[in-house]
Design a protein around this nucleic acid. Sequence first.
DNA 1: CTTGACCTTCCAGTTGATGGAAGGTCCATG
DNA 2: CATGGACCTTCCATCAACTGGAAGGTCAAG
Lengths: 130, 130
Amino acid sequence: MNIGDVAKASGVPAKTIRYYEDIDLIRPQRGENGYRHFRETDLHKLAFLGRARALGFSIAACRVLLALYEDEGRSSSEVKAIASEHLQEIDRKIADLSDMRDTLAELVESCAGDNRPDCPILSSLARKVG
Amino acid sequence: MNIGDVAKASGVPAKTIRYYEDIDLIRPQRGENGYRHFRETDLHKLAFLGRARALGFSIAACRVLLALYEDEGRSSSEVKAIASEHLQEIDRKIADLSDMRDTLAELVESCAGDNRPDCPILSSLARKVG
DNA sequence: CTTGACCTTCCAGTTGATGGAAGGTCCATG
DNA sequence: CATGGACCTTCCATCAACTGGAAGGTCAAG
């Protein structure tokens, strides 16, 4: 399969696939014409990567996950550890965003949104103290 | 005030303050020795920026907010519009992260996390369909 | 006069792609 | 056999918003 085929099949854009090869996530073979040639396993890896990235795993984490995926002698605890850590990271992000959200929602609600200049949002951003 | 002073007072790192000057968010004066010299208004702007960034506003949004902040003839509706849009963006992000979180939490829960290689997390990432 | 804490500029790196230019290849059609 | 369009290639630049570090100037205290 050429890059366009795997792109379609895996849902990972061709541009991104080239990038993944660049950073050694995948190693497609090359044809005589210089075209990348993808085997089934490459396609599987790309689909795997696409799903892992969709779950928010970093490229570094994907690299480890992919290695574990290919390592028959792995322990599921290794995988679980990575996923758990990532889950915590996501929870942290959600918590941070929720804090922002609450503050922002309050400010937006308190703002008249009319043609007068007085604005609690700006006042809050410009406030002298905590 | 020198950059170190405003950094301390505003909570914005010196490095970041230089960057903000670089992208024309602030325009501190210069002393004869080449040092940046910050006035009260600069400090206010930096604190403003620090709070806006902490609420997740992009630099582009901050630029507009800062302009509105300094424009006596503004309408609060302009400010509210920017904040509302940002609020929606945050809500979108939270929703996305929550989806990831739920999927991930399910997977983590279903994984034994022992020394055997079988792992629902990897199976899910490697799944053929759906 | 030296030491150390400041300050300066400039260049590179981070994360994870994405856009685009310039050019080679392949295949179907005329 | 030529030509056109859809592929493919590489390489370089760009995005956000900083951050780190090197090399060197300045200032105040002891």
